[in-house]
Amino acid sequence: MDTAESLMPREKMLQSGIGSLSDVELLALFLRTGTPGKDVMTLAKEMLCHFGSLYGLLTADFIQFRSLSGVGIAKYAQLKGIAELARRYYNVRMMEENSLLSPEMTREFLQSQLMEEEREIFLVIFLDAQHRVITHSRLFAGTLSHVEVHPREIIREAIKLNASAVILAHNHPSGCAEPSKADKLITERVVKCCQFMDIRVLDHLVIGRGEYVSFAERGWI
């Protein structure tokens, strides 16, 4: 009888479930085929080694990607499609499940929406009194290192949606998620403005590349 380690990714998935696959095996499952003189498992290992992680691979641009010998636009399109499919999945899941947000689900959703942005985006999730998602909105867009946020616009949108609570989020395209002094100041302003309208700010998450910071987890909200 074959052990799990000796099985090809598809057979291993059928026997032990998708969660049993390593990063290399999961990547090989999506790639399906190798390149001339290189089987798909070898190709998957080389790609992960070259980019350092699945994150590094899925966020690479085409110039970085084609530095791999024998790999072209078809494989690049496959992997970009995977990343976009994941982003859309979290988007739909957020709206269709209509469930209470967990910290993990919130973080995963925000990372899927903001992690690859090349400029700062300020996104707000609007919730009802039971903390179920009403909608989310990219209210402000900025530059590589700054986004101007207007608390009154957040309040106006929350009132229009009859929201009882909000979760704030923005990304740092530099990759480092550590909040700046400006991030802390604008969070304080938004919290104070929301308090006047009896709207709770549950958290503010800063999304970096493969990392995040939660104001709530740090006790800042």
Rank of each mutant, 00 (worst) to 15 (best):
A4L: 14
A4M: 14
S6A: 15
M8F: 10
R10S: 12
M13V: 01
S16K: 14
G17T: 13
G17S: 11
I18W: 11
I18K: 12
E25Y: 02
L26C: 13
A28M: 05
A28V: 07
R32K: 15
G34R: 02
T35Q: 03
P36R: 08
V40Q: 03
T42I: 01
T42C: 01
K45D: 09
L48G: 08
F51S: 05
S53E: 06
L54W: 04
Y55T: 06
L57I: 05
L57W: 02
L58E: 06
A60T: 09
A60G: 08
I63W: 04
Q64C: 04
R66I: 08
R66W: 02
L68R: 08
S69H: 11
S69T: 09
S69C: 00
G70Q: 02
V71W: 10
G72E: 02
I73G: 00
I73S: 08
K80C: 06
G81N: 00
L85D: 06
R87W: 03
R87Q: 12
R87T: 04
R87V: 00
Y89S: 13
Y90R: 02
V92H: 11
V92G: 01
R93G: 12
M94H: 12
E96P: 05
N98H: 12
S99N: 12
S102I: 06
P103E: 07
P103T: 07
T106C: 13
F109I: 02
Q113L: 02
E116Q: 10
E118V: 11
E120M: 11
V124K: 10
F126Q: 05
A129I: 10
T135A: 10
H136Q: 13
R138S: 10
L139K: 06
L139A: 05
L139W: 03
A141D: 03
T143R: 13
S145F: 06
H146R: 13
V149F: 08
P151I: 07
P151R: 09
E153K: 14
I154G: 04
A158V: 11
A158T: 14
S164P: 04
V166S: 09
L168G: 07
H170I: 07
N171P: 00
N171G: 02
N171F: 01
G175D: 05
A177I: 02
A177S: 15
S180K: 06
K181N: 11
K181S: 08
K181G: 02
A182Q: 10
T187I: 05
T187S: 14
V190E: 11
V191E: 03
V191I: 15
V191S: 01
C194Q: 01
C194V: 06
F196E: 15
F196L: 14
M197S: 15
M197I: 02
D198L: 08
I199H: 04
L202W: 08
L202K: 09
D203P: 10
L205I: 13
G210M: 05
Y212I: 06
Y212F: 15
V213K: 01
R218N: 13
